[in-house]
Design a protein around this nucleic acid. Sequence first.
DNA 1: TTGAAAGCGATACCAC
DNA 2: GTGGTATCGCTTTCAA
Lengths: 329, 329
Amino acid sequence: MVTISEVAKAAGVSPSTVSYVLSGKRRISEQTQRRVRQAIDTLGYHPNAGARALASRRTRTLGLLAPACDDLTAGVIRQFINAMLTAARGHDHDLVLLNPAEGTQGIRRVTVSALVDGVIVMDVDKADSRVGLLEELRTPTVIIGVPDSPGGLPCVDLDFQHAARLAVQHLAQHGRRHLALLESPAHRKSYAVRTRTGFTTMARSLDLSFTAHRCHPTPDDVRAWVDALERDHPHTTGIVVQNEAALPHLLTCLRQRNRQIPNDISIVAICPRAIAEQQELPLTYVDIPAADLGAAAVDALLQTTPPPPVQLLSPRLYEHASCSDLLTP
Amino acid sequence: MVTISEVAKAAGVSPSTVSYVLSGKRRISEQTQRRVRQAIDTLGYHPNAGARALASRRTRTLGLLAPACDDLTAGVIRQFINAMLTAARGHDHDLVLLNPAEGTQGIRRVTVSALVDGVIVMDVDKADSRVGLLEELRTPTVIIGVPDSPGGLPCVDLDFQHAARLAVQHLAQHGRRHLALLESPAHRKSYAVRTRTGFTTMARSLDLSFTAHRCHPTPDDVRAWVDALERDHPHTTGIVVQNEAALPHLLTCLRQRNRQIPNDISIVAICPRAIAEQQELPLTYVDIPAADLGAAAVDALLQTTPPPPVQLLSPRLYEHASCSDLLTP
DNA sequence: TTGAAAGCGATACCAC
DNA sequence: GTGGTATCGCTTTCAA
């Protein structure tokens, strides 16, 4: 193992000088800097993470509490994780995965054992028990999502309310006056509620009829959801899909029933672009910009300036063939 | 921050005693142990990770190099990650995510900076540049997958050759004598090759006709794949799907062409159970036991006894409606 | 512009 | 069965 002293010796300087070259916290002459960097390169020196953390009281590591889902939403989560990993590495930080199964204790452990400098919490419930603990621990924290009482913890999220409004507005502009919202079963999550709020308020204000129901992303449940829709709201001509995992099943089901998209029924999904593009037909969608959100979360955590309490990214709608105005009412 | 000395003081013992109570490397009287644990609990003590790593030269952290895919295979990857996280925590270890984008330098960095005690590498190519580096670094490593020249690095994987044989055998038993293999585009991965090998050898030995082609998991490409199949091998009555992300598109496509499953054509997928069960019909599948594989990898990394060079888990086939013998040839 | 040295908090060896 | 303490490799203050 090559240490800072060896580098110092090789460069003919003291260990502290090497340290300062690395941290940039002191002016070092060009000369010396070159010699030190030279030595670092030739010896292949990397500072010992433990020693560095011990001395500086900073670990350069972030904890990430991500949901443990294994269904189709995994793709979205994965995009978030990738984005945050890239952003963290961009700030010369590492990412350790926290186990959701350990709940609140896991967070406590990594923070009080000084394994991480901060924590990013995804997938918070509207009323989330972890929020209280995080505040109390006074560890830098960023939440992806917006719990009912963030209690001072900075939140980063897509403006789902706005996203739903965009979707409704778009459908209305294309002549759809009877809408349905296909919701995910995650009714405890704030994004679900905010989406529904945006959906209903916009539908009301445009004087549209509407209905909204949750549905598990399984073929059977989606079929049942469509059954119920056709029975109770047979005039529905537009569907907003908040439950991205249900998309393939929904499209399958509608096709089996010979419901033409967009002629018989239009669809606007609220989901990441990658998901929308994997579907069997070109979907009009409001993007969930996972990469931007992940990067924003990491930046908020690492910035020296305190981040805004709630940072809602503006949604954008991408128009494709699943909603256009071929309909002749 | 509560330190080991404070715990020691509170318990009326020396710091070393506290350390030994925690590590169990020395016999400590019941009495003392109770007092120490008591103090630990009331003070909420967790040893400082950096200090511990520095003194013990072990970080209790594992590096995980997972592929950064964001498509449907993300679900599989996520299962692996969950399994490994759980297994690692079960051994009182943490997991840091390595950035595939940093390639070989990332591995070097975390090992020489003593951020991790070992590395798990997923998604290795048949000929993978990282293998050489890992050997040279002499960091404990486990590979999930089997590169052509593991060069002494332990490998853990499903026995894909056997898995493909199971699938072929099953189709043959149900009267299918003309088979196709729907491969993923990942022809550089060893599992792809091993699957194909198992497929072809078993098909030959059972005197079946067969064909195998790669396909991107997009609706269009799958449709083209089916087109080619119907044109060049119109008698095909059984498909083995190695490309799990293409499954939904394949099922969609076959349905659109009124090809009944399993009467007209049978399907056996090689994929994790969770994927198989998300499809629109009950698939017969050979399970990729991500949880078992992940756990096996972590165990291999953390066991004191050197792991076997190549550990191939036996596949198991689960029978459902996508392959049964309703066919009357 | 640079060096010396005092910690950081745990481990594990040497004593008893 | 327990205590004292040198040590791990780095950061950062104090001094020059």
